[in-house]
Design a protein around this nucleic acid. Structure first.
Lengths: 181, 181
DNA sequence: CATGATTCTTCGTCTTACGAACTATCTGGC
DNA sequence: GCCAGATAGTTCGTAAGACGAAGAATCATG
């Protein structure tokens, strides 16, 4: 009965251990820790991102996100630019250095993972993405309203959550923030 | 770039963070952090273990292992006994308190995940299991050995899990040590 | 005993991570 | 205009895990 749960747990453990141990190796090679790398990728993916976006997408608190961005900024990988329309917001964008570092840095997980992942048939990629997000939700959202339905339609749009892809926050900032120009 | 791969990575990261977060909550209740729990499990599994064994099985350096054992010792969960034949070695064993704590401590993942997992519709459970195993395979295929922590971690159901039987890594702890003396 | 290897500990440091408090800013009500 | 509340981000204090380097104790060997 909870055979599947157990199987999932074991697989999950293996995944966790694998990612952790691999991340450590990688951090040594690239000088970038996994969270830092993730922040870089989020920023690149979003084009520009606020600290809040970075925090929520990276799955950490704002304070932690600030610390991460601090480090990245001090190394010249990202820059901060205060928003024009809403001056509370700070838009984080990649510098050329950061972009280069990101290009040079391998994936935070196995290169094999990405390589193999990309070779999977489309439906399976979609399945894995959906499953991972589902699991993240299962583990993460304590107060998740028990909507057991995975909207299958959203599978094709992994940018389920706001701010995931660049053009996703058009009303968020009128586009007059500095980085765009 | 690899949109889905990135999404997977982020989701994976969120899973990691969620797990850590749960572990932290649990740590407050039980007073045991995940690494500490792992050390306890390793020690229990081995009966007695040297610091080196603990370090290598937990996948951390000796210094870290010492720190963890320090914490556990200060809480009375383990004891250190200098080896008789080789007095450089320190044999770490569970105290009754530690054994009790280990019995009482729930699996850091088990609680939330299992409960929610089992509320999912059947097809989704199946999907998640398949996805997790797929991902574990993708990650693990690069020669990452399944950490001993894995099956030590599955203490709740030692005989239940398939394909993850102990005895995969024998010979690490001699057994001729003078612990009884 | 001297030398070198080993085992573990200590020390200093780095990184992540959080909550709480704080500043700055925006928004709404008056 | 101005105050109150909400929001965004930072700073501060704290804690844990993790590592490398250096040190102490011990063993094995010559």
């Amino acid at each position: 009965m909870h055979d599947r749960a157990l199987t999932s747990l074991i697989a999950l453990r293996r995944i966790l251990r694998a990612t952790e141990s691999h991340a450590r190796l990688l951090a040594r090679e690239t000088g970038l820790s996994t969270p830092q790398l993730i922040v870089l990728q989020i920023v690149r993916h979003a084009g520009e991102a606020t600290a809040k976006t970075v925090a929520s997408q990276a799955g950490v608190g704002q304070a932690t996100a600030t610390a991460l961005v601090d480090k990245l900024e001090s190394r010249g990988f990202v820059r901060r630019q205060r928003g024009d329309s809403d001056r509370r917001q700070i838009w984080i964008s990649l510098t050329d250095t950061g972009r280069a570092a990101l290009e040079a840095a391998p994936d935070p997980l196995h290169e094999n993972f990405t390589a193999r992942f990309e070779q999977l048939p489309d439906w399976e990629q979609a399945m894995l993405v959906a499953a991972l997000e589902r699991i993240a939700a299962l583990l993460g959202a304590a107060g998740l309203d028990a909507s057991p339905v995975l909207h299958v339609g959203a599978i094709d749009h992994p940018g389920d959550h706001p701010g995931d892809h660049p053009g996703d926050h058009p009303g968020d900032h009128p586009g007059d923030h500095p980085g765009a120009g």
